[in-house]
Design a binder for these strands. Structure first.
Lengths: 204, 204
DNA sequence: AGCACAATACACTTGTGAGTGCATATTGAT
DNA sequence: ATCAATATGCACTCACAAGTGTATTGTGCT
């Protein structure tokens, strides 16, 4: 059975996926370090000890490489929103949970890529998908905020403006976070959320 | 006297400066619209009805064009800090003044360029100056925060982390602000600062 | 009148990097 | 053993954009 075609087919697909992933990981690291435009696929290939042609076997073009990286990051954020929403506790508790996770994701390879990449980097064809995901996250953020306002666990705030403000603050670490720095992502995330929540807590 | 050489020399220099400025303005608009890397100096020249060679008469290279644009934006921020510091009133008042202005600058052409441009876009030679200016602004922000904490007009907070958090939130509008949108810069700035200050106000 | 220099254009070089055609190796299926 | 498909490398094309050499025009200065 260990030689059954099923097993083999699955194995092969897994191999392929693993290689594709490795390409994306290498690419996102270089994008984050030197910037998307300063990174050639030749560079990425070299860093993996393969040739550029091989990359094109797993991904259609450079634009798709970027889109995949960004998608991974954005999907992590969406997951974080879902998880937070499923949590017990007050609306405020769920919000804090979400924010904490949000910041941490933004200090991960793919999250950093998301916060560093603007629309200019993507092709016309990739934009719709990118925007759709962004929108979803914004909607999720607003929903979580609205729920917390609803149950009174945070003060009454302008949900839309607050979502923008939070998004900006939370994305920022993607720009300056240095893994070799003194603070861990968890510490940074805690401190930032503390600062931000002050403005949201109900006041007497 | 209107033909005195002084007048003429000054006039000429003013003309030159005006042209240089026009180039920078045209360039920054295109950078903001399509991104720095997607904008060629040929494009910029065409938008002014001149040839690329003319641009090179006023600026050494593309890198310098960008550096000048960014410098203008960053210097506006520094000015804002100085003005805020000179203001009467409590530390909190001065802080609010600064934050309000900060956000507004980030919705102006040169400010947008600052918030959209990362270090990857600049050359090795330009980086030191860029970093020095950034640092100055960070220092100013922390100083203003520290003064407000000092005089008790805002709550005791972690100055460093708060400065980072604020910077992120305040830079964000540069990414999404649309001059044709419903909200004016002043409205956006007011709403954002309101959200943020909540977290800084002393609580009873 | 003529000089010096600023301003501007045109046409060119050059480097780089995305994407591809083709040849080759490897491996599972029959 | 052989075939088909997948994986990979090499070498190429092609487009584009940064930057420059050179010629030309305009203008203030003496």
């Amino acid at each position: 059975m260990q030689n059954s075609p099923f097993r083999n087919a699955a194995q092969r697909e897994a191999d392929r996926a693993a290689k594709r992933d490795a390409v994306l990981r290498a690419a996102v690291r270089m994008f984050n370090e030197r910037g998307f435009f300063a990174t050639s696929l030749d560079d990425v290939a070299a860093s993996l000890g393969i040739s550029k042609r091989t990359i094109y076997h797993y991904l259609a073009n450079k634009d798709q490489v970027l889109l995949e990286c960004i998608t991974i990051g954005l999907e992590q954020l969406l997951e974080a929103a879902d998880e937070a929403r499923a949590e017990p506790g007050s609306g405020r508790d769920r919000l804090v949970k979400f924010l904490r996770r949000y910041v941490e994701i933004n200090m991960d390879d793919f999250g950093i890529c998301v916060s560093r990449t603007g629309e200019e980097a993507l092709s016309r064809e990739s934009l719709p998908r990118y925007r759709a995901l962004k929108k979803k996250i914004d909607v999720a953020m607003r929903q979580i905020l609205a729920e917390a306002v609803e149950d009174g666990s945070i003060g009454p705030i302008d949900v839309k403006m607050t979502a923008f403000t939070l998004a900006g603050a939370l994305n920022w670490p993607g720009r300056w976070y240095d893994p070799k720095g003194a603070l861990t992502p968890a510490e940074i995330s805690e401190a930032m959320v503390k600062v931000l929540m002050g403005g949201l807590d109900p006041r007497s």
